[in-house]
Design a protein around this nucleic acid. Sequence first.
DNA 1: GCGCCATCGTCAGCATACTGACGGTCTCGG
DNA 2: CCGAGACCGTCAGTATGCTGACGATGGCGC
Lengths: 155, 155
Amino acid sequence: MSKKLSFALSSRPGFLIRRLHQIHLSLFAEECAPFKVTPVQFSILTAVEAQPGLEQAALAQEVGIDRATLANVVARLARRGLVKRLQGKEDRRLKHVLPTPSCRRLLAQMEAPARRAHERTIDSLKPREREGFLKALAHLVSAGNAHSRAPLRVS
Amino acid sequence: MSKKLSFALSSRPGFLIRRLHQIHLSLFAEECAPFKVTPVQFSILTAVEAQPGLEQAALAQEVGIDRATLANVVARLARRGLVKRLQGKEDRRLKHVLPTPSCRRLLAQMEAPARRAHERTIDSLKPREREGFLKALAHLVSAGNAHSRAPLRVS
DNA sequence: GCGCCATCGTCAGCATACTGACGGTCTCGG
DNA sequence: CCGAGACCGTCAGTATGCTGACGATGGCGC
């Protein structure tokens, strides 16, 4: 029965957060199956579309992952023709990331299913609870941002 | 300023959950640095201590990860002498996982820092909000359990 | 008692995510 | 103008987490 006292995995905040993350990944994969795109890839494509030409390091800060991981994901997106990478002319250290027509088409098609995935993740809460949950979630993320290894750019 | 409308990454539940998970991982790593143990490893050790001799598939269901990943993590724990694996006598397909004295010592030392990591993850909420947040979180995890690729055993 | 099917552990493959290190590039002070 | 330090992209290494497939084993019906 796993009721050993001091066991209680499912009373630990971190454990619950990991599980909810898994659930969201699964829902997103289900809703967006035809597109073979993960939530992180979708976040990056969204950011690239909103701010075309951002360099990789800045992009990493926008979506809250580290430089190495972002370079990995962007390389995969580039292989699929969803983004282009251009070496900076003024500052030759930079690589600017740009959306392709494919990217814009994909984002348009994915908007509805992606939104459904996000909604379904918190669907079983009553509207009032949902509001409070999202508010608390946003507050925790904002407060803990500095503690993350890959802090969001506050801008 | 990334205020493009329909961009708003930080209003998407899935995005916030991923970020909060990263923050928790970082806090846990900080608090438990001397032990070189991750949250998932700690969860597994806790489960092994509470239910010694469980086979790998059952253990995977206890902590909510799939068989393949669990085997990976357990192999690492075994290399460090924190668990033993015994092939089943009655059912020779099974591998029973058992804690070693090292495991018990480690769990005792880590209890306080691990608890601090979990507490700090939700520390910036007021007590009332915290309670509501945890309740909603537990509810969402329970409701979405079946949607996860590696559902928890309800028991 | 024998074959069908489920289950277990494992493997290869892929994706996310971090660290620490490296070489290339830029900036700024002296 | 030139050297120190900062920054950028990349790489290797490690960890979590999933899929689909595989061989070994077990249980059950006929």
